[in-house]
Design a protein around this nucleic acid. Sequence first.
DNA 1: AAATTCCTTCGTAAAACAACGAACAATAAA
DNA 2: TTTATTGTTCGTTGTTTTACGAAGGAATTT
Lengths: 115, 115
Amino acid sequence: MTSTTKKYTERQEQIATFANALGHPVRVAILELLASQSCCYHGDLSDELPIANSTLSQHLKVLKDAGLIQGEINPPKTKYCINRQNYAVASEIFASFFANSLDTEFTKDGILLCS
Amino acid sequence: MTSTTKKYTERQEQIATFANALGHPVRVAILELLASQSCCYHGDLSDELPIANSTLSQHLKVLKDAGLIQGEINPPKTKYCINRQNYAVASEIFASFFANSLDTEFTKDGILLCS
DNA sequence: AAATTCCTTCGTAAAACAACGAACAATAAA
DNA sequence: TTTATTGTTCGTTGTTTTACGAAGGAATTT
């Protein structure tokens, strides 16, 4: 392939970005905590997670940069919550990604290729 | 939190593993190619992707280690295809992950917390 | 004003990732 | 047997990630 192309589609980049954010177990745990409690202070999360405070801040930044959470800073406390809008986007994009892939299983006239 | 705990659940680890594999746009592209064509030789993928052959091998290894694809080596050719079984697992685990999270939006008596 | 609480940022070190070309199998073709 | 073809593995380089403690900022409490 030539190098003049724009490498990857926006969608592929978007999927990778969301996936990357989910690509560490502690970030999955963070999202689950936020989802179950709607909101949490940094300290609440820190109590539940086996990582240093500064490390937690880093992971929260990753999630925020990916758009999956948002933080309301209110010194000295900071409240985090899920960004539901982007969460829905992520949910859909993953669903469609897997749906498209699995579809092909059925669009090949029942022939299971690549045994 | 004490350090005696087993850090993360199997499920959290599993999600992170799958997500990690999806965490690079070229790997998303690879999966899409495999999904649309059912199977591909390494060379077919190489023609479509803007990376060196050796790099492609690395990415394929990541996807294989995560269980998302499988490779049938038949020198000098190698045929790759999606591991549909694990793919279905991944699809479900992501779906349930997002479903659980978004559910809370409705289980809070319509009160949108954390504006 | 000093001390405390809460969290972020900084500095740093170790590990993992991503990319490439070169070298290396393993078969097929000449 | 030599040459090609096809991929993987190796070695290397540079970047990113993950982790921590220390230091810093911002309000609140003492």
